[in-house]
Write a protein that binds this DNA or RNA. Structure first.
Ligand SMILES: [Zn+2]
Ligand SMILES: [Zn+2]
Ligand SMILES: [Zn+2]
Ligand SMILES: [Zn+2]
Lengths: 166, 166
DNA sequence: GATGGACATGAAAATCATGTTCAGATAGTT
DNA sequence: AACTATCTGAACATGATTTTCATGTCCATC
């Protein structure tokens, strides 16, 4: 029980080196509670004075994803958005199409169903992807007047990180 | 009951012109019972002697998608794969990570669950994306010896269309 | 405290799916 | 046949992600 309680902002992978850049990416992800794109994250770091090369951000995110420490969703353009995975693991999120705010949803029902799918189909090693989008209570009013005011241009990609956090 | 029972390989959208290219894309989709990428579809048409420009394929697929006549999924690279939507509408598929074969799954449970999500969250206009992948019975044996023989290189993108049809 | 090699970085270039332009072809109508 | 709103496709543009590769850094060993 010494350095056992590691986990939070330690290293990307066991055996990986602890560098300024990886630490920065990891910390930024932990601090940033919404989904964020690789590029936005890079910009965020730069603004914070902890500049990290875009390639390194992508590499680190790739490694983190492999290590199962991230949740990844895709926005409607196919761009990947990352978020630190809460300690327990597998989750699904409901994301507002307007402001990008997200909240985890309870998916026991779906998980149970998905687990049973293999049996009926002869498929093994079944994995699933589930994404929910909607318009959050805060955005609903502005979206009323014809769906155009909110959803219109910016397709909820937090390319400007200062809009989604908090 | 003249041209009423339209629908199958008619026009992309009501009011759209019926051109050689759109007809070809439409027919190819109807004949091709698996998911296929825009590029693979284009290649397929070319091989079949019915060459259609890639731009046109993309445009036609975009229009068909808007018209609700296609199902679209994304492979792990983010590439979009299209399939003619069976007459009834909303469906989800279980896709083999090895051979790309897909089969629709019964999702009543999930649909009902998804419909109820809005109420608990304050979100409106909730939509969902659900994708299932696994290893089909036919591929399971070859995938045994260490997961490498099947899944390895070609990550199940039917870029060579002759492998998935039928 | 020098050395060597394994691993890491980042700028720049490569990839690659998809979108856009626009001059010329075409469908559908009169 | 003539007319014109559409449609087409080659070439180019875009933008996210990946690769390359020259250079930097860590660390164990001498
Ligand atoms: Zn919102
Ligand atoms: Zn799940
Ligand atoms: Zn298979
Ligand atoms: Zn559904």
């Amino acid at each position: 029980m010494s350095g056992a309680a590691a986990g939070r902002t330690d290293t990307v992978e066991p055996g990986a080196r602890r560098t300024r850049q990886r630490t920065a990416v990891l910390q930024a992800l932990v601090g940033f509670r919404d989904f964020i794109s690789a590029q936005a994250l890079c910009a965020l770091l730069t603004e914070a004075g902890v500049s990290v090369g875009l390639s390194t951000v992508y590499r680190t995110l790739r490694d983190l994803e492999r290590a199962g420490r991230l949740d990844v969703v895709r926005d409607e353009t196919g761009e990947r958005l990352y978020r630190e995975r809460p300690e327990d693991g597998h989750r699904h999120y409901l994301i507002c199409r307007c402001c990008g705010r997200s909240r985890a949803v309870d998916t026991e029902v779906v998980e149970a169903w998905a687990d049973r799918i293999g049996e009926h189909t002869g498929f093994t090693d079944v994995e699933h992807t589930l994404e929910l989008t909607g318009v959050c209570a805060g955005c609903a009013p502005s979206a009323q007047q014809g769906e155009t005011s909110c959803r219109q241009e910016s397709p909820r990609r937090p390319s400007d990180p200062r809009r989604s956090p908090r």
